[in-house]
Design a protein around this nucleic acid. Structure first.
Lengths: 164, 164
DNA sequence: CCATTTATGATACAGTGTCTCAATAGCACC
DNA sequence: GGTGCTATTGAGACACTGTATCATAAATGG
């Protein structure tokens, strides 16, 4: 309850967590937000990423009358509350991912677009040096890595083993 | 100034450099591309950032019939050739900047949107550790820092004239 | 149950980038 | 300098993403 084990999160408890976020900033518990929370909880389990548009289309199966703006509004709230992460892709587009609040970064496979989380971060000394040098108060940062996952490297090596 | 002069490039030579990029990949030298190159050379001197749309609007002063798609196409080419950098902002939008080819990152003031370059980068050991851990072949990365510049911190301190 | 106030959904709107295609203009060759 | 081939252009249609508006519906507190 008050001490959810991150490794035993059920879809239901994640749903409740999202609804608690809405509640904590004075937003009402509506049927639409419950539907959205349930779907996001499922996405949080799988770690899948999604665009706001895609999320809306999926939710239309649950409720064909669900408004697009309603979904966008909920995503905005959950993004600013830190429940959702925005992932920027190299082509300038961006998608969302339910990652909880812990600070981390993402690495994207440029071939299959799979996204994995990285818990490593930049050394604080680097930030300190930059901040001092430029006289900036650093408030946040975004680090995205791009590369090829093991599977895609295999799949792309037709005459393999001679390659690097 | 006794330090290494960063302005060893004149606007004209930068224009020529851009046109050489077009030429090197077999693209023709057109009046439109020369106009675009000249403007980008000027932007490269000041280090200003811009959106494709803004660039197009500015160029309409030089040639009121210049097509929007023409500018977008040129920006795409110069981006993929590494002459332009794409800067991603925290709100998901992105802009371009003529930075030449040297690897570097950007720090943006969240208040005045000023962008400064950072030559610091991540320690190679960090990349190696991540790549090994996740079995990824890392091909690129993007690091954006957000914060407040000295001026904006001053401007935002209403009753703190004695503040840092 | 009722009054108040928030949330919703439909739609219009704005911004950004892509695509198509007929007309234009470079470029290589004569 | 012509000439023909072909890349390029420009205009606009189109798609996608996100925001604003506002009458209506629904949730909350009493």
């Amino acid at each position: 309850m008050s001490q959810p084990d991150p490794h035993t999160h059920t879809s239901e408890s994640t749903t409740a967590q999202i609804l608690r976020i809405f509640d904590s900033i004075g937003l009402r518990s509506t049927r639409q937000r419950r539907i959205i929370a349930a779907r996001l909880a499922a996405l949080a389990m799988t770690g899948a990423d999604f665009s706001a548009q895609e999320l809306w289309h999926e939710l239309l199966h649950d409720d064909p009358r669900l408004g697009r703006a309603t979904v966008y509004r909920a995503v905005d709230v959950l993004l600013s509350e830190g429940f959702l992460d925005r992932i920027s892709f190299a082509d300038g587009t961006h998608r969302y991912r339910a990652c909880g609040a812990a600070h981390h970064h993402h690495m994207t496979c440029v071939r299959c677009q799979r996204v994995i989380e990285i818990d490593a971060c930049l050394p604080p000394a680097l930030f300190a040096a930059i901040a001092t040098d430029a006289d900036f108060a650093i408030e946040g940062h975004s680090l995205e890595l791009f590369g090829r996952c093991a599977e895609c490297r295999q799949a792309e090596a037709p005459d393999a083993s001679a390659n690097v």
